[in-house]
Amino acid sequence: MDSFNIYQLNENAVTIEFGKVISEDRLQTITAFNHKLQQHPFPGFVASVPAYCTLTVHFDYLQVSRWVPQKVKCFEKVNNYLTELYGTLTNVNISYNKPAIEIPVCYNAEFGTDIDTVSQITGIPVDEVIKIHTSKIYMVHMIGFIPGFAYLGGMDKRLNVPRKAKVNTAVPAGAVGIAGEQTGIYPFKTPGGWQIIGCTPIEMFDINRAQSSYLKAGDRIKFKSVIKQEFEQYSRQ
């Protein structure tokens, strides 16, 4: 089992640290434990937030303070609950067992405004850039930065390009970007500095969905190249 270390973030939240290095196994453990916690929430539980090596658990201080024995600190109570729950964790491979989520992307230069630049920097032809980007399975390590933005791990090192020198003030919703060894999808129109290689018609963030973010930590995804007509069909659905 991974190391399991809890510290207090504020009066209403604790963070569990599962070691200090990013790895897929660690992501599996965090995802599995998060799943377990969602199924067995404690009275006063509000939300749990996965990040690379941590899971932060938010709660209602007043509710937890009412647990018996009342004299024990809230932090101790939550700490004990989480530690005990972690001890019961057996199956940590839940997301490995799920199929990868397919994300359609149109890589046309019209949408992938920087794909030619990426091709020039890497010396890889555009067709090959698309082939490399769509051949990998990516892990969602966490959702952060802005609502619905997934930090994806597993990008091919050949596509390692620097951020743009000048931040684009309005990257469109659905834009697929790459920078360094990272790739990601902009959920809505926002400023951004990544090289844009395509666009997905999928609404990555939608306030009208029960799960507003299309992706969640622990998901596995795969990009699929689609032509403009298919992109437009998706958009109309």
Partner: peptide, 11 residues
């Protein structure tokens, strides 16, 4: 709103 922090929705 703290319920959607995991979707990166701020408080």
């Amino acid at each position: 709103r703290r319920q959607h922090l995991a979707d990166a929705v701020p408080v």
